[in-house]
């Protein structure tokens, strides 16, 4: 896109990453502890209040899987090492 930069935001609404992050936190199940304003300081990236549940990122992953056309991967154990009988039990050193 050459003229993309100049055209961008000349129409339609702007994208606000901060609002996006806020919405994501809610979606991931942020447990907001108490009043936000108190701790919400820029130095901490505004990330001190509340905590995310353990499965927060799994929750987001499950919802956003449909955005990805990722190929599933094949995993196996047989064939990942040489098929040699276990060496007779003796130590080299």
């Amino acid at each position: 896109g050459k003229e993309k930069a100049s055209q961008l935001f000349s129409e339609g609404c702007a994208f606000d990453p901060t609002a996006f992050a806020e919405h994501l936190l809610s979606f991931m199940g942020l447990n907001r502890l108490e009043e936000e304003e108190e701790n919400d300081e820029l130095q901490n990236g505004g990330g001190v209040d509340g905590f995310l549940p353990k499965d927060a990122w799994h929750r987001l992953a499950r919802r956003t899987e449909c955005c990805f056309k990722t190929a599933p991967t094949f995993h196996y154990m047989m064939g990942s090492f040489y098929a040699e009988p276990p060496p007779p039990k003796q130590k080299s050193d």
């Binding site: 994501l24 990122w57 799994h58 929750r59 987001l60 992953a61 499950r62 956003t64 899987e65 955005c67 990805f68 990722t70």
Partner: peptide, 11 residues
């Protein structure tokens, strides 16, 4: 199983 990195990548 879901991969949490998918979420990170999405963001």
């Amino acid at each position: 199983p879901s991969n949490p990195k998918t979420g990170l990548l999405f963001v």
